[in-house]
Design a protein around this nucleic acid. Sequence first.
DNA 1: CGCGCCGTTGATATTATTCAAGACCAGTGG
DNA 2: CCACTGGTCTTGAATAATATCAACGGCGCG
Lengths: 223, 223
Amino acid sequence: MRELCLPVGLALDALKELDKVVTKRVCLTKGESLYRVGNAFSSLYAIRLGSCKTTLLSDDGCEQVAGYHMIGDVIGMDGIGNGRHGCDAVVLEDSEFCVLPFDELEDLGRRVAPLQRNLHQFLSREIARNHAVMLQLGSMRAEERLAAFLVNLSQRYSARGYSSTEFVLRMTRAEIGSYLGLKLETVSRLFSGFQRQGVMRVQSRSVTLLDLPALTRLLGQRC
Amino acid sequence: MRELCLPVGLALDALKELDKVVTKRVCLTKGESLYRVGNAFSSLYAIRLGSCKTTLLSDDGCEQVAGYHMIGDVIGMDGIGNGRHGCDAVVLEDSEFCVLPFDELEDLGRRVAPLQRNLHQFLSREIARNHAVMLQLGSMRAEERLAAFLVNLSQRYSARGYSSTEFVLRMTRAEIGSYLGLKLETVSRLFSGFQRQGVMRVQSRSVTLLDLPALTRLLGQRC
DNA sequence: CGCGCCGTTGATATTATTCAAGACCAGTGG
DNA sequence: CCACTGGTCTTGAATAATATCAACGGCGCG
């Protein structure tokens, strides 16, 4: 628990307190849901192992991928506001989660100021993260969106000690497209295009970024 | 302060405590900034009067409108995470803000559980709000986005005791477009189109929604 | 009055979607 | 072992949606 999730730069006693509330684990296999829209909210979840996507359901029943989450990410924060989860969390590979009962987390926050601060930072960063996605969806063209997606993945894998240039996509083209506001064919074409330009290699879900600087340059090009 | 902002359904003593930390006000005139990207974060701000937009700056220096905020909204929450504001807040008309020093808010939260809960709900709702915007940007067509925007404004004005069918847009076509991921010409054309269909009347910034159900229907139509 | 920003509209260009066909791949059962 | 199947992925051609370019009208303000 300690090296991931909430506690970053916390004192030892604060960590011990935190460990006390994190007692439960959940293991799920590919395709299963951790929670669904409308489920009563009671806990946040930290990904200990594996990955998942969160999906939104618009009024008309059409679903959109809202986030791709990997080891160390905390999910479920959108449920605090009205006591119900606002999205589905679907596991993309066999995964394990820490259960963080939110009432106890709040309790703890009241007693341990650094932990409280930490929780607030997590909530805030989730907001900032969404802002970045909004920027992507609102002002980038298809090519730039996919490049941004790849660079983002690269950075997150790198931050977790994995290779920043070689990784396996856990989502289908359709899911990536949904996340980026594109159709699956467009995503496929873009991958092919990037490969043709020599920027990356794609072999179904396996990805090798050959020219990360070039990808990064694509982002800053235009508005 | 009481009727707006944070405190909804709080006990009287909790309210009194809250009043103690909300001592400062800020008044700004059209075009001024409440804060800017990179400014040190110290407070949240509740809009007491007027309205403002928040804008993001992408790496290449292109700006996008990320939110439109009106009386009673609390802004600045994206700055908690790393101690600096992540967007600009620009006032759209002469406006007044309550300053909510965040350290004191956290202090207070540790002492008054309902207030703590309230703060968390606010943060969470901001996340949920962003999700809705992501849905708009990611899976709706231009017409649907503008309809969603208008319906959203209508609901928010209505919730604040103003007319749900007649209001004044505080943003230019370019700003609305930026918010919705469209160009100003597209926004203009859509307004004209809606007017031609008899769904609404537009007279520069003054808007009258003639057929709210029709607008709402536009949202649920397709994916 | 004239200037600058804002808004509208048309013609054209670009971008991404849709529709359609087929390839690939893993898992299944004969 | 191999054919079969369903899901995924790729690619092309036609189409639709939106952006871009350009011109002009209007309004507010100094």
